[in-house]
Amino acid sequence: MSDPSAASIVSTPRPEQPTEFGAPTNAGLPESARKEKPRGLLGDAWRDLRRKPLFWISSALILLFVVMAAFPSLFTSGDAVNGSLDNSLGKPSAHAWFGNDVQGRDVFARTIYGARASILVALLSVAGTMLVGGVMGIISGYRGGWVDSLLSRVADVFFGLPFVLGAIVILTTFNGSGSNNSKTKIMGLVIASLVILSWPVVMRLMRSSVLATREADYIVAARALGAGTGRIILKHLLPNCLAPLLVYSTIMVGSFIGAEATLSFLGVGLKSPVVSWGIMISEAQNYLRVAPNLLFFPAAFLVTAVLSFVMLGEAVREALDPKLR
C-alpha cells in the first residue's frame, strides 16, 4: 500500500534550481515573459503608439484620405470636371451634397477628386526632399572637413530664401501665364519648387544625427573590422538616424498639402483643369457671400488632412523620444 505523503512529494513540482552564479535564471517570471524577445527602438515606439487614441484617430483619417485619393470613384459617381450652367451656384441637395459651383459642377465630386492632386504633390515632394536632404546630410556629416563646410554653406544660401517668395519666383518663371504646360509638367514644377526650398532642413537634421552617431562604438568596431563606407552608412548609420526624419517627414506632408493649396490659391501652382483643394478655394473667393459652401467644404477637407498628418507626426515624435513617454 503506497504512502499518500510520498505520492504528494513526487507530484509536487520542484522549484527551479539555481545556476552556478547563485540565482535561477528565470525564477519568478511568467512563461510569456521568458519567451519575449528584447525590443528595439521601433518596437518600443510601436508599443507606445498602440496606446495613444491620437495615433489611431489620425491614422484612420489619413487612411481615409489616401483611399479617397487613390479610388475617388468609391466615394462619388459625379463628374468633377464638367457641369451644367443650369445648376450654377446650386445649393446643397440630395443630388449635389455640397452644392454646385458657378459652372454647375458638383462640389462634392470636386472635393473628393481634389484629394488626389493635393496628397500626391505632398507625398512626392516629401519623398524628393527626404532623398536630396538625406543624401546631402549623410555626406556632410560622415565626411566632415571641407565637404561639410561646402554643403553647409550651400544649405545656408537656400535657408535665406523665403519659402513662399522663392516658390512664386520659380513657378512664375517656368509656369507663367503665357505658358501652355501639361498637367504632369505643372505638377512636376510644383514638386520641384517644394523640394528645392525644403531640402536644407532635412539636410541639417540628418547631418546632426550622423555627427552624433558616427563615433559610436559599433561604428568604430565595424570600421576596425574592415567594413566599407557604403556598408557602414547603409547598415549602421542610416537605420539609427531615421527617427527624427520619420517624425519630420510625417509633419511635412501636412505642411506641403497646405503649401500646394497656398500656391494654387495665388495662381502660380496647379491650374485648371486640374482639380485640387487650393484651386477650389481660389475659385470660391469671389462667391463667398452668395455661396459660402464653395469655400467651406474644400477648406474643411484641407484643414482636416493637414491636422491629421501633424497629429500623427506629434504622436510618432512622442513615441520615439524616451524623454516624452
Rank of each mutant, 00 (worst) to 15 (best):
C241M: 04
D3Q: 05
S182M: 02
R51H: 15
S179A: 15
R51S: 13
S193K: 02
V306K: 01
S88D: 05
S272L: 14
F21T: 14
L131G: 04
I232Q: 09
G166L: 00
P244E: 01
R116V: 00
S198T: 09
M280S: 01
F159C: 09
A109F: 03
D217M: 12
L54F: 12
A117W: 05
P322D: 01
S11W: 08
F256Q: 12
K235Y: 10
V10E: 11
W56C: 06
K183A: 15
A69S: 14
I191M: 06
L161F: 15
M68T: 12
P244R: 02
F21H: 11
R14Y: 07
P4V: 07
M311S: 11
K52W: 09
K35C: 05
L225G: 14
L194T: 04
A259W: 04
G230E: 05
S276Y: 01
V310Y: 12
F158W: 12
I279N: 10
R204T: 01
L302C: 11
S77H: 11
L131P: 03
P239I: 07
G176S: 07
F71A: 13
G313I: 01
N175A: 15
D44H: 11
V195R: 01
T262C: 08
M280P: 00
L29Y: 08
T229G: 11
L307C: 06
E260H: 03
T173F: 11
E31G: 07
V126R: 00
S2K: 13
N286A: 15
S179R: 14
V10K: 11
R116T: 10
T250G: 01
D101K: 02
F98R: 01
Y248F: 14
A6Q: 12
E283S: 11
G99R: 00
M68L: 06
G78T: 05
I251F: 07
S84Y: 10
A27Y: 09
A167Y: 00
D3R: 09
T172G: 15
S32I: 13
A227W: 08
P18K: 14
I119G: 04
I112C: 03
I168R: 00
F75K: 09
A224V: 12
L120Y: 14
D321H: 05
W199L: 03
S5P: 02
P162T: 02
K271G: 01
V66E: 06
F158M: 13
I257S: 03
L288D: 07
S177N: 15
V147L: 14
M130N: 07
A33I: 09
S11T: 12
I112H: 02
K91S: 10
T184P: 07
G226N: 10
